[in-house]
Design a protein around this nucleic acid. Structure first.
Ligand SMILES: [Mn+2]
Ligand SMILES: [Mn+2]
Ligand SMILES: [Zn+2]
Ligand SMILES: [Zn+2]
Lengths: 141, 141
DNA sequence: AAAAAAATGCAACTTAGTTGCAAATTCTGC
DNA sequence: GCAGAATTTGCAACTAAGTTGCATTTTTTT
């Protein structure tokens, strides 16, 4: 990670009252630089040499989610995917699209969804998450 | 299962060109009678005596999903939940609400969501799925 | 009733994610 | 900087949802 990225992740961790550790800076850096949600395995793959233990990455992700720097984006098969929260609003992330032919997933940052209206009496809706399915440009032809 | 329910599930399976078997009629019957999505384990629990092997239930669910009689509603933790498709439209199920305090999940059949608009060029959106988070009536107080 | 097609049960397996604990790192106050 | 407290990390072992291969049974077709 560059010095610039290092100080940026360090600042974010400080503000969130989290210890600034190598594993957290690296994990957050990877997610900030990704245009799509990543699984623990995909994150680990980006650590060239002397990576981190998968348990540490899982615990790092849990701490980042807890302070809101990262979101659990969705479950694909039985695997959670995570993304930095910098392109999400307080009440929802952008929708995620999965192609039912090739299985690829895309962040649909251009698609705007209004918040759900008309919840039954007594329910308080705080966040919503939208998954889209269909064919990606490569498969739609 | 009642005789009426038996003939109803049998008819649905016939129309879908699936063999009408005990495991399929029972599984479909349970889902049709449920007001919320169920996991394999929850379905199995409803088979009093002489239940079915969990592998058979999983394979039954896969066949019901394949013909569209049942939907994979959502993943909670690492567990899929299934529901009969009779209260879903062609392009989306009703939203599912999960309480972040007690963990309970509810079908929000009253909440209507418009289909996503403005997908990037080349993408074909066929279905959408909405998850809501917040506090249920019991936890909102 | 016989043959063909498909579903079922069982045991063994896979693997994402979790837990407990000892060692290492980071922070805080001097 | 340095000691001590607080927290994170790595490792090994574990958990459990879901899958696979194969022999047997059930359902459908003729
Ligand atoms: Mn997000
Ligand atoms: Mn549905
Ligand atoms: Zn595709
Ligand atoms: Zn609740």
């Amino acid at each position: 990670m560059s010095d610039h990225a290092h100080s940026e992740t360090e600042r974010l961790l400080r503000e969130a009252r989290l210890y600034s550790t190598a594993c957290r800076r690296a994990t957050l850096g990877v997610l900030l630089g990704s245009d799509r949600p990543l699984s623990q395995a995909q994150i680990a793959d980006q650590f060239r040499d002397g990576g981190f233990n998968k348990v540490s990455i899982y615990r790092t992700l849990a701490s980042l989610v807890e302070v809101g720097l990262v979101h659990k984006a969705f479950l694909h098969k039985r695997t959670w995917h995570f993304e930095a929260a910098h392109r999400c609003s307080q009440t929802q992330c952008h929708p995620h699209f999965t192609c039912t032919r090739c299985g690829a997933t895309f962040c649909m940052t251009e698609v705007r969804m209004p918040m759900a209206q008309g919840q039954p009496r007594g329910f308080v809706i705080l966040r919503q998450q939208v998954r889209l399915e269909g064919y990606c440009p490569g498969c739609a032809g």
